[in-house]
Simulated assay, not measured.
Amino acid sequence: MGKDLYTRYPQSAKQVFDEADEALGGNLVKLIFEGQQSKLKLTENAQPAILTTSIAILRVLEHELDFDVAKACTYALGHSLGEYTALVATKSISLTDAVKLVRLRGEAMTKAVADRQGQTAMSALVVRGDHLPELEYSMDEIRASLPPGELVELANINSTFQVVISGTSKGVDEASRILQRKGFAARAVDLPVSAPFHCSLMQEAANAMEEALKTVEIKKPIVDIVSNVTAKPYSNPEEIASLLVQQVTSTVEWNRSIDYCKKQDIDEFLCFGPGKVLANLLKKEYPLDKIRSITTADDIDGLYDELKLKIDNSVSRTQENSSK
């Protein structure tokens, strides 16, 4: 993950990896490129690794293709951990502060449920037809009906056809069964995660983030960032820390965040980071939009070739008109 960027772009991507590695006291780069996958997938490692790789891609776009976030983008947004990527991309938080924050975030999330001995779960549900509103309403009923000590909540609303639920193992199983029986969900897929993210079981982690964010300088983003919690742009820099704290236990309102952008006539999305999940969701929801995913150095080369072709064609047309 990201090694092609690291070796091919020493003046941009390598600097990002090295800065993040130094911020965390070393070993991050080695873990990403050479470490065991089981260790890399631990959330305290995965979060800074994904953030670092994402920003490395952005830095290459900026240095090699003259990409300018402020000029090119109307909004910036990121899914869960990706919101920190958006904050770094828009110069609201430094990369050094961000990787430290997400390392703490991952550690705190794991610690928050350490005493539950694996009795927690997350599950992705395929939503049937137009039943998302009914599914959301049913989740409130299911939550209220669970016995003491059991919990299930909506962790992510990723699209009109996909949600993720989170909580105790019994709570998640019960919700999956009921939602499928009612015909609101077609099937459920258990997710191999180390903690039940974005539910109230993460309150201890939210408390840890609240303290950590008090020590971080947060500036006004150079581009409006759409919050995971409100599905609207931050109104001022002062509310960013508060919403990042709320984000730990709240539903990731991704579908409504994208819907907000669509209502502002956005029809072009650039998705960067080590994976294509969000880009694929967008392509399925909005097949006529222009959605580009940048995950590797080859993707960047392809974008460079496309831009060069556009410039060459533009120059050719200009010369043709001049000759006339």
Rank of each mutant, 00 (worst) to 15 (best):
Y260C: 06
R181Y: 08
V127M: 05
K182F: 11
K14T: 11
L40K: 00
L28P: 06
V216T: 11
P192L: 02
K30M: 09
S38T: 14
T110I: 08
L58I: 00
S159H: 01
M122N: 01
K263T: 07
L5M: 01
K262L: 09
S250M: 08
D267S: 13
N27C: 14
V277N: 07
L51V: 09
L58G: 00
Y286C: 11
K3N: 13
I222D: 08
Y84C: 06
D190Y: 12
S176G: 01
S159F: 02
T85A: 13
Y260F: 13
E136R: 15
N27V: 13
V126F: 12
A70N: 13
N321V: 07
Y260T: 05
H198L: 04
A86R: 06
Q117M: 07
D115G: 05
G183Q: 09
L77D: 11
S159Y: 02
Q36S: 14
A155W: 12
I50L: 12
E107C: 08
G106F: 00
P233K: 03
S293A: 15
D259C: 04
E62I: 09
S169M: 13
P133A: 03
D267A: 10
L151D: 05
T43F: 03
Q37N: 14
A175F: 02
S194F: 06
G129F: 10
A114E: 12
N45S: 08
I165K: 03
N45M: 08
I225S: 04
R187L: 06
G35Y: 03
T7N: 15
